[in-house]
Amino acid sequence: MTETFSQKANLPLVRRLEAVGFRAWPASSVQYDGSWQVRLTAGHPSNRLNSIVPLDPSDHRDVEVRLEKASRKFEAYGRPAVLRHTPLASPVLIDLVKERQWTHFDETIVMTCDLAHAELPDTLDHLPTHDIGRFVDANLATDQVSPKLKPALAEIINAIGPPCGLFMIEDPETGPLATVLCVQDNDLAGIMSLSVAKKRRREGLGLEILTSALRWARMRSARSAWLQVKAVNVPALALYGRLGFREAYRYSYWRREQAQ
């Protein structure tokens, strides 16, 4: 699959979606080396926030030296170097990490939907909250993630530049049931942090909250929606397909294992 990424993709679309994705989930430190981005965020482990991101398939000048230089930045953070492999990555760079036996993982599908013409189900509507702290608590709870990540996640959401809607479904007795973050970047609406409490899945809550976010974005003149989903997440793929999302391209990661 990885060898065919660049052969199948619409590269101008990939560039645009990668750019809006970075604005929707901003790293605390971004450094450039040619067309490569080196994204690092000390307080959060997400690979989106901590990876080397090549943005031009033809940029492979001094590739060995540059990869080593970028890798040392990760070592300074006490982390293994991670490379984001999209259709914008040079085949020369990918061949190099394969040769050096980096570990390949986490294939993800980027999907888009024609929001202007999408037929959204008639579900219960929810309005976005402006309480970032409350949203972060709800998202960590439904995702079953450590509360220790609250400061970092709150910092990320506060740093988002484009307008965003924070959506939650809560039960007065049992607490948060579902969350989603929608980031509207001009005519594009990005869906982030969709999460449903484990005990309440398959009850339509994901569809309900996602539809609310998409309606909100459409009312604000967004014409297309995009999201990222792991290739192995079959239930999520079925949900997104039901709403008209289709695959635009795929990406994955390569990680350099640290010496023991």
Rank of each mutant, 00 (worst) to 15 (best):
G204D: 10
L214F: 06
S221A: 10
I209S: 04
L194K: 01
Q184L: 13
L194V: 03
A222L: 09
W216R: 00
N186W: 12
A189M: 09
S224M: 15
G206H: 07
S195I: 01
G206F: 04
R220Q: 03
R202F: 09
R218G: 15
A189I: 05
G204N: 08
Q184V: 15
M192C: 07
E203D: 13
R201N: 00
A197V: 07
K199Q: 15
I209Q: 03
A222R: 05
G204S: 06
I191E: 02
N186F: 15
R220E: 02
R220G: 03
A197D: 08
G190R: 04
I209W: 03
G206I: 07
L188I: 12
S195R: 00
L210K: 06
R223W: 13
M219F: 11
R220Y: 02
R215G: 01
K199L: 11
Q184D: 10
L210V: 09
L205A: 02
N186V: 11
R200S: 05
S195C: 00
L210M: 10
A213Q: 05
R200P: 06
M219T: 13
G204F: 10
M219N: 14
V196D: 00
L214M: 13
K199D: 15
G206Q: 10
G204L: 05
L207M: 14
S193L: 14
S224I: 12
I191W: 03
E208L: 13
S224W: 15
D187M: 14
V196T: 01
R218T: 07
Q184N: 14
K198N: 03
L210Q: 07
M219I: 15
M192I: 04
A213S: 07
S195E: 00
K199A: 12
R215V: 04
E208V: 10
S195L: 00
E203I: 11
S221V: 04
V196Y: 00
A217V: 02
T211G: 07
S212Q: 09
R202G: 04
T211W: 07
S195M: 01
A189S: 09
R223E: 14
L194T: 02
G190Y: 06
G204A: 12
L188M: 11
G206K: 05
R200Q: 11
A197F: 06
L210A: 08
D187E: 15
S221N: 12
S193T: 09
A222E: 09
A189N: 08
R220L: 03
R215H: 03
Q184I: 12
E208I: 07
L210S: 06
A213F: 03
R220N: 04
I209G: 04
A197R: 05
S212K: 07
L214Q: 06
L214D: 09
R223H: 13
A217P: 01
S224A: 14
A197W: 08
R202L: 04
E203L: 12
T211D: 12
R220F: 06
L210Y: 07
